[in-house]
């Protein structure tokens, strides 16, 4: 199989853009932030990043922002993922694997329901200014 060229990639992008415009995508402008420090990587954060993207692709959701950050200070529950979704409180999920990633997309992102058994409510105190409250 020949390598995809930049021109072919551009065409694919344009095709996707047309598809997105055809769909009703309101209310799905969410943000997923994955902790990608040494701790996160060692615990499988890259598999989780890939799982989130594949799951979003499966559901044809193109406009969720998926970004990475360093260690969030919750090394004991890595991989950690922060999810910001309209109408939902900001949530930090811990011990996320590919299966939990699928649940977060199907429950939190698509149906505004928290995946309660994996919620960790905030970063640990040692990375919050003055130790937090």
């Amino acid at each position: 199989m020949a390598k995809m060229t930049l021109e072919e990639l551009r065409k694919l992008r344009d095709t996707k853009k047309v598809e997105i415009q055809k769909r009703d995508i309101s209310g799905k402008d969410s943000q997923i932030i994955i902790g990608m420090g040494t701790c996160g990587i060692a615990a499988g954060a890259k598999v989780v990043l890939d799982a989130f993207l594949k799951e979003l692709d499966t559901h044809h959701i193109e406009n969720v922002s998926v970004t990475q950050t360093g260690c969030m200070g919750l090394c004991y529950v890595e991989p950690t993922v922060e999810v910001l979704s309209p109408g939902m409180p900001p949530v930090i999920y811990g011990k996320v694997d590919a299966n939990v990633a699928r649940l977060i997309i199907e429950e939190h992102i698509m149906h505004s329901r928290m995946v309660s058994e994996h919620v960790f409510d905030r970063p640990s105190t040692d990375i919050i200014k003055d130790g937090g409250k």
């Binding site: 199989m1 020949a2 390598k3 995809m4 930049l6 990639l9 551009r10 694919l12 992008r13 996707k16 997105i20 890939d50 989130f52 993207l53 594949k54 979003l56 692709d57 959701i61 193109e62 406009n63 969720v64 922002s65 998926v66 970004t67």
Partner: peptide, 25 residues
């Protein structure tokens, strides 16, 4: 330049597809 914002899931999936095609060769 080709994909636009690289934080969007749609762009990232296309980016992986592009990189995968390079590695497959």
């Amino acid at each position: 330049e080709v994909l636009g914002d690289l934080s969007q899931s749609g762009s990232l999936n296309l980016l992986r597809e592009y990189l995968q095609s390079q590695e497959t060769a």
